[in-house]
Nucleic acid binder design. Structure first.
Lengths: 254, 254
DNA sequence: CGCCTTGTTGAAAACACTCAACTAGAGTGG
DNA sequence: CCACTCTAGTTGAGTGTTTTCAACAAGGCG
């Protein structure tokens, strides 16, 4: 792990970590001023990492949970020598390892896929919140449960053909990025290599390349270096059998 | 859904649902008498279902969560016409859909794999518990987070070859069943068809058959109808690259 | 410039799937 | 009791998808 770069919040003109978090939570339920203050008091260091940096190593004891502010990062296993399987991808606003608050040791690595900025929330502070703010605790619980729903979809996705798998991943990333303002129905910037996409879909990078060509030739989606163009979202989603229910993007009534 | 059979607890000589639950929770942390009483008050109907019965349909509104008392059940998607992907398998003591307390609508079906007995816990009662018993709430949260860890492992497993996938699944089931008294290092009863195993590992039933033959011929594991014999656990686990850390079977220190 | 990563393509091999046929056993009804 | 039917398991042959190995192009960066 290369030493992280520390960024003092005053140095940036970007929004505060607490704003990113509250906005993410408010997509699920209202956050009171008191709850917002409690969360603000729990914000710890803000750090930036270059792509490839390992933020958390599997098995290591964790003292804080990581909120992703900018960029993308992945959670991954190593299957063999140089074979890796990415089991989750995260975008801005995601509480990447909230589950480490309960598990203490993670079963996977957390790795930057692009330049990332993260905010750390010490477990001691989060723990106080969960004990004193039951509604907030419930909201955080909900986040971990939605995370699990995405895991299930990723497992199910591996039952499909290569083209459907890749298309489904692109649909998911498009939707999740669009929700946080990082994309639109027409396309979105994506800083993933074809090998990254392969590790997310259980394919080799080479086969991803061939698959992307087929998708491009079918007019479904054009993936160039760094940008994904979607000519017809509905068409792509139909092909990918993408049903966004599992993202639970709308508020869930009590 | 065939009409469930209701079983009055007095009619059975099996242990009470509350005992099964408390034992499962105590594998993670101590449960006080007061907490036990709170849980006991939340126990609802007990039901039995035959194999194949759909207990919960994806998308339906849920009013209670399901504790599995006996048998095995699965959570599954439908990928196409008759293709299904099982994304989770559960054994006695598992709180199968605790996450429905927060999600309200599940993204998957819950289906009996064998004859099962389940206890229902109404959400209203569970919700009261989470609000008044923070330690218990944390324990329940932990259960959902471990469930997610198992999801991740299932996703990662699909990156391996057929033989490793099947062997890994058998290792997991052996360990989980052994923990609840349904197996040993030498073997365990398993009421799954080869097609079931295929749907859990992303393989066709036919290929599972060939794979089981190879595993048998290698002396790693013998899967007969209804029973799995394991000549050498360590050997099988090494082949399957099975590391049980992700089951978080030991108590996690605060 | 040389080196690295990423992307691209071809050919051959490995792997898993489909189709098909057949066995064994459990359960049913005559 | 036996024929019938259903499900689960087994095996072979052929097909299709994905991987592996190999080579090369394009671009970024020291």
């Amino acid at each position: 792990m290369t030493p992280p770069l520390y960024v003092r919040a005053e140095q940036t003109d970007a929004e505060e970590p607490i704003d990113t978090l509250v906005r993410a939570l408010e997509r699920r339920d209202d956050v009171s001023a008191r709850e917002r203050a409690a969360l603000a008091a729990a914000v710890g260091d803000v750090r930036v990492h270059p792509p490839g940096d390992v933020l958390i190593r599997a098995g290591a004891l964790t003292e804080s949970s990581t909120l992703l502010l900018e960029g993308m990062l992945s959670r991954q296993f190593y299957l063999g020598e140089d074979k890796r399987q990415i089991v989750a991808a995260h975008v801005a606003g995601d509480f990447v390892d909230l589950h480490s608050l309960l598990l203490k040791r993670l079963d996977h690595d957390v790795v930057a896929l692009s330049d990332v900025k993260v905010a750390l929330f010490p477990h001691a502070a989060l723990r106080r919140i969960t004990e004193k703010e039951p509604h907030l605790a419930r909201l955080l619980w909900l986040l971990t449960v939605i995370d699990a729903a995405v895991h299930r979809e990723w497992t199910g996705r591996l039952g499909h053909s290569a083209a459907v798998r890749v298309a489904h991943l692109l649909c998911e990333l498009q939707m999740r990025l669009t929700i946080v303002g990082g994309g639109s129905d027409q396309g979105f910037p994506l800083a993933l290599t074809q090998a990254d996409i392969g590790d997310m879909t259980g394919l080799t990078g080479i086969h991803v390349n061939r698959t992307l060509r087929k998708l491009r030739e079918s007019g479904l989606v054009i993936v160039r270096a760094g940008y994904v163009s979607v000519p017809d979202v509905a068409h792509l989603r139909a092909f990918a059998r993408f049903d966004p229910t599992y993202l639970y993007a709308e508020r869930i009534p009590r």
